[in-house]
Computed example of a mutant assay.
Amino acid sequence: MAKRAMTPEAKALKAKAILDKAAEMFLSSEYEKIKMSDIAKQMGMSNGILFVYFKTKEALFFSLLCREYEKRLARLAEMAKEIPVQNFDDFKNLVMNELMELVDHNPLYVRLESMRTAVFEKNVDPETMLNHKINLYKLLSELVAIICASHALTQEDVMEILQAEASIITGCKLSATLPEEVIDIIEKNGLDGLQRNFKEDVRKTVNCYLDGYYKNHIVTRKDNR
């Protein structure tokens, strides 16, 4: 069995290793099928030691999801600094380019985001939840400040659009994820129209949402001035 890490640095490294292993498992299995004992076994540690780091499976999942959120916010901020947002078209390009990069290169984020609605935060201890949310809010505020520097959009615009985009990612991923037996039936019966292409669906849906948001909010706001 693995020895329990004692120093803060060692505990942080062990927590990261646990999250890395959990990420591998969540990529290949459904949330409901993964047990904390499975993760402990993969880590070569006892269940008791695992619970020292993460008190519930929900807390572990929430920590992993927040880690991916942090990476994504950092990447968006990096892209926004490289090409400053001067108007809504710039913002739309930022959102669409980052979205396609996310879909192509970060399947973990997409999968965790689609699982999020099935995981209840009520089983996450308050301290863990508070610490993660404070950090996420800080990163999100920094990103919004970068995007809104030219005043092409308001903070409310950016917040609302990013939240809507997350919901679109979840919806498109869920509709495109079918059990193997259902896929077999569709293919054998030539029902290709029932199969969804996640990348194409999410690209079209977010693009349409952004166009609609511009027309119904940005343009309307300008006309009312």
Rank of each mutant, 00 (worst) to 15 (best):
M45G: 02
M96N: 05
G48T: 09
H132A: 08
A59F: 01
N106C: 08
L50M: 12
L112I: 04
V85M: 02
L130V: 01
L99I: 03
M115F: 12
F54S: 07
K133G: 02
I83F: 14
T56C: 02
A118E: 11
K81G: 06
V52Q: 06
S46G: 07
L143I: 08
A74V: 12
D90C: 13
E68G: 05
V124S: 02
G44Q: 05
R75I: 05
K92W: 02
K133I: 10
R67S: 11
L139C: 11
Y137P: 00
C66L: 00
R72T: 06
V144L: 02
F88C: 07
A145K: 15
A59P: 00
I147E: 00
F54V: 13
L60T: 09
V95P: 01
M96S: 07
P126M: 12
E113A: 11
I147C: 03
M45S: 00
F54M: 03
G48M: 13
T56V: 08
L65V: 04
L65I: 03
N131D: 09
I134F: 09
F54H: 10
S114D: 09
R67V: 02
N47P: 15
L65Y: 12
S63T: 15
A80S: 14
Y137S: 14
I49D: 12
D89Q: 11
A149P: 02
Q86M: 12
L143H: 06
V85Q: 01
N87K: 14
T117E: 11
L73F: 11
V95C: 05
F88Q: 06
L65G: 00
L50D: 08
D104Q: 07
C66K: 04
F91L: 02
A145P: 00
R75Q: 02
F54G: 09
L102N: 01
D125K: 05
E98L: 01
K92T: 06
P84S: 13
N87G: 15
Q86L: 13
R75D: 02
L50N: 09
L139Y: 06
V144D: 00
P107S: 15
M96I: 13
E101K: 09
L99Y: 05
L108M: 06
L140Y: 10
N93Q: 06
E58S: 13
V144N: 01
V95R: 03
L102C: 03
E98Y: 06
I49Q: 15
P84A: 04
L136H: 06
A145D: 15
Y53N: 11
E142P: 05
N106R: 12
V110H: 05
P84K: 01
F88R: 04
K133E: 13
V119E: 04
L76Q: 03
Y109T: 13
F51W: 02
I83A: 09
